[in-house]
Amino acid sequence: MGLKGRIGIALGAVVLAVAAAVGYMMFAMAPPSDLDLARSKKTAKGLYAVEIAPENPAFERNTLHSWVVTVTTADGAPVEGAEIAVDGGMPQHGHGLPTAPQVTAALGDGRYRIEGVRFNMSGWWEFKLHIKAAAGEDDVTFNLSL
């Protein structure tokens, strides 16, 4: 290959890099298109099955609201007396939740109310639960797209 060809390839690569960078900047903040938005999941080690649901399904961005978490064992029995810690944030922005949500009530049948949730921005949020109960400690991460 001659010098001309090599320069052409090198500059072609520059063009692609510029296009990729512009594309990245334009779309970096959009949630990944293949995000798993399931609201019912197994925990990482498979100890529990967890379902989350907002108490008011029509909750809006930037309003303080609550969720109900339902925890069952892998074979479907409700888990009572669980300690649940809430964490999360926006992976694309590198920040956590703007509030410190907490479990404020055990509602029975493995259901728990988490109060004090707010999502102050649009985009991809992670909602992470650390669950500690008789079967052991386990984690689950839900994705939410606002």
């Binding site: 001659g2 001309k4 500059l11 510029v18």
Partner: peptide, 19 residues
């Protein structure tokens, strides 16, 4: 060689501009 290199540069710049 120099001429063809500058010609290649010109074309590449043109393609960047188009992009």
């Amino acid at each position: 060689r120099l001429i063809s290199a500058s010609e290649a540069l010109r074309r590449a710049l043109a393609s960047i501009a188009v992009t």
